[in-house]
Design a protein around this nucleic acid. Sequence first.
DNA 1: CAAATGTTTTTTTACGATAAAAGACATTAA
DNA 2: TTAATGTCTTTTATCGTAAAAAAACATTTG
Lengths: 311, 311
Amino acid sequence: MSKSNNVYKDAYNRCLRLLEETSNLPSEPELGATLGVSRTTVRGILARMAENGLIAWDKRDKTVLRTPKEEDFFPEEETDSLSQIIERSFMRRLLAEGAEAGMQINELELAREIGVGTTSVREFLIRFSRFGLIEKRRNSHWVLKGFTHAFALELADIREMFELRSAAAFVALPDDSPVWADLDRLEGEHHALARDIANRYPEFSELDERFHRLIHSASRNRFIVDFYDVIAMIFHYHYQWNKAGQRSRNETAVAEHLAYIAALKSRDAAKVEAACRKHLTSARQTLLDSTPEGRQNVLAKRPAATGQYIV
Amino acid sequence: MSKSNNVYKDAYNRCLRLLEETSNLPSEPELGATLGVSRTTVRGILARMAENGLIAWDKRDKTVLRTPKEEDFFPEEETDSLSQIIERSFMRRLLAEGAEAGMQINELELAREIGVGTTSVREFLIRFSRFGLIEKRRNSHWVLKGFTHAFALELADIREMFELRSAAAFVALPDDSPVWADLDRLEGEHHALARDIANRYPEFSELDERFHRLIHSASRNRFIVDFYDVIAMIFHYHYQWNKAGQRSRNETAVAEHLAYIAALKSRDAAKVEAACRKHLTSARQTLLDSTPEGRQNVLAKRPAATGQYIV
DNA sequence: CAAATGTTTTTTTACGATAAAAGACATTAA
DNA sequence: TTAATGTCTTTTATCGTAAAAAAACATTTG
């Protein structure tokens, strides 16, 4: 079992969806481009589809014979790449209770528990190390630094520096820059989400990422753009497994985003800075509250806070 | 040839140096701590030293019999770790002429040319990717983004943000913080270097790194501290293979550092910012001049500049 | 009995091998 | 004669394995 064919399976599933919309599939190179895979994989997909009676394939002719059924799809879990599997498994442990700073990380043990080779785990850890949550001892084990209060603070500090700078760069972009159209589109999506927040609040995190990435892209600096990966990763996993108060948090954030977008469109640097600061401050608080130390504080303070603090 | 024993060889060489200073080696755990290796390796070293008549080893007694000779040492090239070998080889190509942005990087070819396994090359590239000079296409090759003008600008921008912030944090540190003693020591080393700059200017780059790392450490932010790795890497390789004008550059930098140190010691925030800005601006220019585009400009401008510009 | 040495086990590091996937080249059809 | 298909080659992703190095455990010594 050298390498799984998840690329093929995932592309096959996505190709099944295309089948529902047309009566003839396009050329192999075109299909490869839309699915993001090579012709080799495309031909593999077409071969299977022909075999299973989904299409009639003869050279350029790829006629759709029937719409795909549930059982035509590969099971979801077989379409994940190995690195996704490892990442998910690792993050589950990291954000679970009991993952304390200073703990050792054992490559071999991780590999065995996830059921993969050591090489893949090693490569994952190396890639993951740039997020600042783990650290390597030369010729020895990895050390968990943990999703701590300190980590959240350091992350939030850099985020603020970078986003304030990016937002300032954003308003300086010329009128004909495509970012303004992107911003308009995002504004519309925010409004749509706000109107139906009660049902659609889980969709916010994806919108949040696209919004902040758009702003960061204005910095035209690869280090700033890349840094958003750290934030996105933390948010992605954290909120996936910690839904407490998610709706109200997202509702607040949508409102802050709309104010922020309005400030950007006004092109008033002072307004932008104020709106950006305000949003990032509440984002920082949310992040801090979600660390193990933060959760304790929230629990401890809640009774005392009733009627005493606005914040 | 599964794994080279460079850790052992390097530690052995370093242990030979210790032999010159004492008549009795310390306990195995202590030796391990000083050499930064495990007891297993220490025992390997002691066994060889005993075998070669360097020491008489009987349990706790490790009497030095003779001082090491030239031929007792392992050759230097055998003490490098595989990742160092790959890094050096890769950087040589990257900074050589002809390494243009957009080029593909072939893992297999690299591995064959360097004479190592593909896994090691892969892991190196993953680690190296955080420097922003290469980028991975999923399921496909790496793309060289190149040491370009744009890269130098983006790097310098972040460096300035981070170092200004760190320097500001530095002056806010209490009097009893150990950084002040470190700063005094570094100041002394700068003066010593300045007095004999004609001979010792090549020593500057090491001092430069220690100085800037000290300042960055005041930020108490892992992302800022880690970012200095990017700068250190670029400087390390760049200046190793591009000695033109090195002496005058270093002379200027020493003077700027001394002014910067004086400003830090004055604890005057405005002075610190000015000194820091000044130094970083000239560092930025040096970096820009060293990119392929920058070198062309320097060559092109040089004749015109005679008597016309001070800069 | 604490710290060292002796011994054994585990983990990390690195390679070669193999299947999946990409890419290159040759051939054919509109 | 361009763009597709058919075929073949190269490269990437991943595993099993083995040596180096670390770490754990057992035993001895001051």
